[in-house]
Design a protein around this nucleic acid. Sequence first.
RNA 1: GCGGCCGUGGUCAAGCCUGGCAUGAUUUUGGCCUUCCAAGCCAACGUCCCGGGUUCAAAUCCCGGCGGCCGCACCA
Length: 507
Amino acid sequence: MPQNLQDTINALAKRRGYYWPSYEIYGGQSGYITYGDLGTKLKRNITAQWRRHFTARQNVLEIDAPIINPEIVFQASGHIANFKEHSTQCTQCHRSHRADHLIEDKTPLENVEAMGGDAITRLLREHKIKCPRCGGPLADPTLILTMFQTEIGATGGLTGYARPEAAQSMFINFKRGHQHARERLPFALAQIGKVMRNEISPRRGLARTREFTIMELELFFDPQNPRCPWLHEVEDETVNLLTESMQADGEKTPIETTIRDAVDDGLILTEWNAYYIGVSKRFVTGYGVPPEKQRFRAHLPDERAHYSAQTYDHEVQMSFGWLEVSGHAYRTDYDLKSHQKGAEVDMTVLREDGTRFVPHVVEPSFGLGRQFLAALEHAYERRGKRNILRLPRDLAPIQIQVNPLVTRDSLPEKAREIHATLQEAGYTTQYDQSGSIGRRYARADEIGTPLSITIDYDTQDTQTITIRDRDTWTQVRTPIKELPEKLQGYFSGRLEILDLGEKIERD
RNA sequence: GCGGCCGUGGUCAAGCCUGGCAUGAUUUUGGCCUUCCAAGCCAACGUCCCGGGUUCAAAUCCCGGCGGCCGCACCA
């Protein structure tokens, strides 16, 4: 067996069809993952949950914009300038360093990055800068551009880039969105879509891929009226915060605070960011990560993005360390102003007092693959020889498995009949008659199917079936005619396994 | 991109050092059996990451590539 949890889950994912490395038959290509049937269904359920938490409001509008953007969009946004790195490597100890930072350390120069590649190479040579670690000679820096570049139009001509985040689509469509939101603030634009980042060295499977789905929301508000009218909904939610100043003091243990207190104490700069941090905690808890394994860590000034005034990463404790599952950035009016300048289009909106202003933005941003990974890892349980995925019932790819107890005496026929009924009712189901009943329950457990329905010899006589619960292995007996109502109750979260029928005791 | 370790059926592993019929467990599928938790029996499907070299002979040795993990850097 594999030694660590990640290997175990990767093996399970491959075996059962959650996900696997892409381009396998051609030897593989790092940074790409393909989702299988179960994975696709799980993703769909996670996005459904995300929508429920983040977009189910009248003034949150969802859009679906193109992935390839003309260069001008990213010139205006600042990405072209900020997405280049000049990296240099020590020829002796092979460590990599950022060339511009080395120059800034050794000279009075500032913002060296903006001077361009030739200047950086020249400065590195002129000042005879050595490896800060071992003092060895450094190679000439190489330019790293982590956006995918392409040409728009089959005959070329116009440079285009794949978007590395969905946010710019929301900013460049701000005016349309504002119009559709009937020109009222606050409102938000949200988007679930693919983005691409040409990572230098992607690793750890799903946690970092070159192409992934992002779930992002931009909330626009008036900085003179920064109140979040929905804050009360999450104000009592407790979160673990690791603030900027705590990290500056070397503090590693977060403080537990309510959203309300975090706002009142000034730990979170805007009510809107605080609101979404609260919702984020609920969302992540909802898909199975216990609160004590979550924290919100503030970005230090030097790791913050070029647009951000304050960013909190929502991190989840995984077997391999902390994993960032979402980012909560206060982007101020940086982006709208950038596009106002770039496109020469007025991005201001009207206040009641007749003045105009550019709205401020708060952005919660989620990588779908990372929610997926966090949900899987926290659902995983080893019980004896068995793997169990204790996925929440509203996340499980297959909701119900239907089995005949044995494959004779017309039990399979009856089981298929019930299976068909459930499918017609809209449930995601699986029919299984292969192997012993225990083996089939084990299969259901391993892919995280919460309920198994078994047709046995009592079914014909009493018109009842048994329902087995994945987590407790408890079984209850239920009349077939009550199934629709009971299952509806269970999957809406109203009923638990013992509410579904009469408990069966077995020796 | 650099360095270290690694790559064997669907999955996990032994074999590699010391070249000689690819091995085991498990999974999957079908059958038998079977009145509830991976039972048993029978059968089947399916493998040495890719390319080149050395050799009578390469999973094994050598070279290159690709991929994975870890460290450096990157992760907006």
